[in-house]
Amino acid sequence: MKFRYTKSVPKNNDNATAEILKAAANPKVISFGGGLPAPELFPVEEMKTAADKVFDKYGKVVLQYSEAIGYSKLRKQIIDLMKERKVEVKLDNVGIVTGSQQAIDLIARMLLNPGDVVITEDPTYLAAIDVFNSYGANIVGVSMDDDGMKTDDLEKLVKKYPEAKFIYTIPNFQNPTGRTMTEYRRKKLVKIAKDAEIPVVEDDPYGAIRYAGNYVPPLKHFDRDGGVIYLSSFSKILAPGLRMGWIVADKSFMNKFVMLKQNADLHTDNLTQYIVSQFLIDVDIKKHIKDITHVYEHRANLMVKQIDKYFPQNVNHSNPEGGMFIWVEVPGVGDTNELFKACIRNNVAFVPGSSFFAGDIKPGTFRLNFSNMNDDQIKEGIKRMGKSIAEILSDNKY
């Protein structure tokens, strides 16, 4: 049988995400690849208790169809979470999604026609790149430094591409670099977007996990005209298997969004929405996040220390103030995929930087995840990576 696929289906079977997960599944491999939270921090017993309460109170309700926009009680609780993040919203502005990944896909579906321009940080989240490509977008990258997206460069690109459909950004502990955008640049980005009448999609799955530096409000905090579409998730602060995220946007946008959401899956899992809502009643979420943050701070600091010990002295790496990732740049490595293969031979894995670039790929770059490995694994894994880097540099005669 010959299937006549649309242009949104990739022409080959290359799947960076699948390869990352495959490497992580090998028990011999110490994987710094997938952006996986620490499973020992999942609130299993608390979730079980919440589920029992939900079935006792609402058993027949939670097993029935529900509203596409989401469970109203959970949405009200999200309003409280947003207040903690210095964003005031109303119930009509909040919707529940099946992980923030679904929101990225639906927003792209709403706004993109083939050939339309999307402006992103470069590098950026690889699954967002995949989504935008699937809708035929022309992805234009904005360079970054330690302060996040370079807004001077963004301003130039907006003038070059005034028809751009939206700007996609991860301002907090960015995936893949771990960098955080300064407040000055956030304000400037919002102004640039407003003046150009280009919406901003702010993806903030990691923002609650800050363990250094000073809190910086989301872009949405500075938005006075409804131009910022804010996304977040319970994946990093509770558990990714819940597939539970949310969107905050202008009411007129939400009306359209909910229609497409309904077409996609009718509604996000009703039972899980009730369980998460009950969990937020039963458990001090601030303390839970604080416990996660403490562990991730330790692991991030340990990984940085090991990188400084075992990697060549001229290696550059980010120093994240939160989140789950460290970005590494190794001068002299011409093909990061060859380094990846060398690391796999030494039973350690990472994500090559090539997966994250919308524009020209910067060689010798890769992302490390520290949240899912214990101390011994971090120490041994980085040691193995240092050995692999030395092998590649030796082969290249550097």
Rank of each mutant, 00 (worst) to 15 (best):
76 K>I: 02
76 K>A: 09
77 Q>Y: 07
77 Q>V: 02
77 Q>N: 12
78 I>Q: 11
79 I>W: 00
79 I>K: 07
80 D>L: 13
80 D>C: 00
82 M>T: 08
82 M>D: 03
82 M>W: 07
83 K>A: 14
84 E>W: 08
84 E>H: 10
86 K>P: 01
86 K>L: 05
87 V>K: 03
88 E>M: 13
88 E>T: 12
89 V>N: 01
89 V>P: 08
90 K>A: 06
91 L>T: 02
91 L>H: 09
91 L>M: 09
92 D>C: 07
93 N>R: 13
93 N>L: 03
94 V>E: 03
95 G>P: 09
95 G>I: 01
96 I>S: 07
97 V>G: 05
97 V>W: 01
97 V>C: 12
99 G>L: 13
101 Q>Y: 10
101 Q>C: 07
102 Q>W: 06
105 D>V: 00
106 L>D: 10
106 L>T: 12
107 I>D: 03
107 I>V: 15
109 R>K: 14
109 R>D: 14
109 R>I: 00
110 M>E: 13
110 M>K: 10
110 M>N: 04
110 M>S: 14
110 M>C: 12
111 L>C: 10
111 L>E: 10
111 L>K: 11
111 L>V: 01
111 L>Q: 15
112 L>Y: 03
112 L>R: 11
113 N>P: 02
113 N>K: 15
113 N>M: 14
113 N>Q: 14
115 G>P: 07
116 D>T: 09
116 D>R: 09
117 V>T: 15
117 V>H: 08
117 V>F: 07
118 V>M: 03
119 I>G: 02
119 I>N: 08
120 T>E: 00
120 T>V: 12
120 T>I: 03
121 E>G: 12
121 E>T: 15
122 D>P: 04
123 P>Q: 03
123 P>E: 05
123 P>R: 08
124 T>G: 00
124 T>K: 01
124 T>C: 07
125 Y>M: 02
127 A>Q: 14
127 A>K: 15
128 A>I: 06
129 I>C: 01
129 I>G: 00
129 I>N: 10
130 D>N: 12
130 D>Y: 03
130 D>I: 01
131 V>D: 09
131 V>Y: 06
132 F>K: 02
132 F>Y: 08
132 F>R: 03
132 F>C: 05
133 N>S: 11
133 N>G: 11
133 N>T: 09
134 S>E: 05
134 S>N: 04
136 G>C: 08
137 A>T: 07
138 N>Y: 08
